[in-house]
């Protein structure tokens, strides 16, 4: 089976549906990117896939014994909690000192082991988060906006690292991101999310899809491509998404 899959998954907060009827699957070794505007349910999707949120309807299933390496969008470490980088890398599973030092080198932050997590720069912090996730020898890496607060070279470097790791280990990667241009070229598949799956497919297919352009106004039409959408979705949660969306891109094109 797939590493993680959902069928008809709906998640509501209070009574408001944040995600509706999501069918999602990620396979071994795949790089899948989820894009979508703020409030589109990206973080909710990740929480549901991790099992932190229970879906209101539908199912989520992880493969048996699935090992997940998770890199959170933001990790706030309370200033009252002392935490060296080396100590952090052994959470929740303990790893030998040699393994941890080697992994720090692998992600390009040799020598920060004795520092406090709070004293790291944004880029170093993200790489340490990645190192911790990789130490679990995951089947899948789940990265939630992993490059927030990084500058352009930092972002490019980070994604290069992810691609290298995938090439070396064959780990699947599920990425939630805003960095559309950078991310999409590296992805096998892109999912465009806005409360439901608007469209999905290979990066070039998705970037040409009207649903995608309606959300991001990118591509050949530039800003004019905004709202060229055949039928306006009304992408908010004030009404139910009862109308039919073209599920396949062939239809949409």
């Amino acid at each position: 089976m797939s590493l993680i899959e959902t069928h008809g998954m709906t998640v509501r907060y209070e009574a408001v549906p944040v995600l509706s009827n999501v069918d999602f699957a990620i396979e071994k070794g795949e790089i899948v990117t989820v894009v979508g505007p703020n409030g589109s349910g990206k973080s909710t999707l990740i929480k549901a896939l991790l099992g932190v949120l229970k879906p209101t309807a539908g199912t989520v299933r992880q493969a048996d014994g699935l090992r997940i390496g998770y890199v959170p969008q933001k990790l706030h470490i309370d200033p009252t909690l002392p935490m060296t980088v080396m100590r952090f890398l052994s959470l929740p599973h303990r790893h030998t000192e040699a393994e941890r030092i080697e992994m720090l080198a692998r992600v390009g932050v040799t020598g920060v082991g004795a520092r406090q997590m709070a004293d790291l720069s944004g880029g170093q912090f993200q790489r340490v988060l990645l190192a911790r996730a990789l130490l679990a020898k995951p089947d899948i890496l789940i990265l939630d906006e992993p490059t927030q607060g990084l500058d352009q070279p930092g972002i490019a470097g980070f994604y290069r690292l992810i691609e290298d790791v995938r090439a070396e280990t064959g780990v699947a990667v599920l990425l939630v991101s805003h960095d559309l241009h950078v991310v999409m070229s590296a992805s096998d598949r892109v999912i465009c999310l806005n409360g439901h799956i608007c469209c999905e497919g290979a990066p070039n297919v998705v970037s040409a899809a009207p649903e995608y352009r309606a959300l991001f106004g990118l591509g050949t039409g530039g800003t004019l491509a905004l709202y060229q959408h055949a039928h306006d979705h009304g992408h908010d949660h004030d009404h139910d998404h009862v109308h039919h969306h073209p599920p396949a891109l062939d239809e949409a094109q």
Binding site: I46, K47, L50, G51, V52, I68, G69, Y70, P72, L75, H76, I77, L81, L91, P92, H93, A136, I142, D144
Partner: peptide, 14 residues
């Protein structure tokens, strides 16, 4: 406990 203190999702993923 330490992992859950840092972040709920981090804990759940493990």
């Amino acid at each position: 406990l330490l992992t859950a203190t840092l972040n709920d999702e981090l804990a759940a993923s493990a």
